[in-house]
């Protein structure tokens, strides 16, 4: 099941450049939360803070608190945190030297799982959840790179799901895909939310409108507005949100 997140006074820097300026936000379990905003607004930094990737960059700094299911993520080992908080990136990045099967189970093998039978069960379950099983079940030993872009992205989602996270972070997961592959990813997100809490960064506002339960608008490192998607896209409270979603700026 998904877990809820509570973000309190989150600040982040790249060197001297402050990219997040005191974000307070509640992310409900088993919901899709979309983060929208113009380039450089801090939306990618925000999700990279949630699985503690941001702090791995030289010169970066984070302040504030992120509570995952009642527990601070900063009290946890970052590697084990990333088992609970999975991430899918903008560009599909299957491991090039691995087969489809090896790609899916790479994370669980890294965690020590070796039993072939179990690995096969996990691979099938993850590929089914990522809506890819039917397309690849007869060629699990082919290279992950033999798949189309959309399939590669679903393979990466399967890989993230294989370690059974509670939260799935997606950083523009469909921006490198064609409209049909994008639609498949969007449908998949809708199906996965019953099992996971999903936070999706997108510069495609229409995508946020289509798939998210709640939408947060970031601007210049600040959270301008966060609310039900149905309200953000029909009657936003803040003039800046309205100007952005109507294309008046950004």
């Amino acid at each position: 099941m998904g877990q809820s997140l509570s973000i309190r006074q989150l600040e982040a820097w790249y060197g001297t450049n402050q990219t997040l300026k005191g974000i307070n936000m509640e992310i409900a379990a088993n919901q899709v939360t979309a983060i929208i905003g113009p380039s450089g607004c801090g939306k990618s930094t925000f999700v990279r803070c949630i699985n503690r990737m941001h702090e791995t960059l030289p010169g970066s700094k984070v302040k504030g608190e992120i509570i995952l299911n009642g527990e601070s993520i900063y009290g946890q080992d970052p590697v084990s945190l990333r088992k609970t908080v999975g991430m899918v990136f903008q560009k599909p990045n299957p491991f090039p030297s691995m087969t489809i099967f090896e790609n899916v189970v790479a994370g669980v093998k890294l965690n020590g799982m070796r039993n072939r039978q179990n690995l096969q069960t996990i691979a099938e379950k993850s590929l089914r959840m990522a809506a890819l099983w039917d397309e690849v079940k007869d060629r699990l030993n082919y290279s992950g790179m033999s798949l189309s872009g959309g399939q590669q992205q679903r393979l990466c989602i399967a890989r993230a799901l294989a370690v059974e996270p509670s939260v799935l972070l997606m950083d523009e997961p469909a921006s490198a895909l064609d409209p049909i592959a994008t639609m498949r990813i969007e449908e998949l997100v809708g199906q996965l939310k019953s099992e996971y809490t999903i936070v999706i960064v997108t510069h495609n506002m229409q995508q946020a409108a289509r798939i998210a339960d709640t939408t947060a608008f970031f601007l210049n490192g600040e959270l301008v507005e966060h609310g039900p998607t149905s309200e953000i896209f029909t009657n936003p409270r803040d003039k800046r949100t309205e100007d952005y979603i109507t294309g008046r700026f950004g």
């Binding site: 229409q206 409108a209 289509r210 998607t229 149905s230 896209f233 029909t234």
Partner: peptide, 9 residues
């Protein structure tokens, strides 16, 4: 209708 137009394009 407003919701579908605003969110589903």
């Amino acid at each position: 209708c407003v919701l579908l137009i605003a969110t589903q394009q």
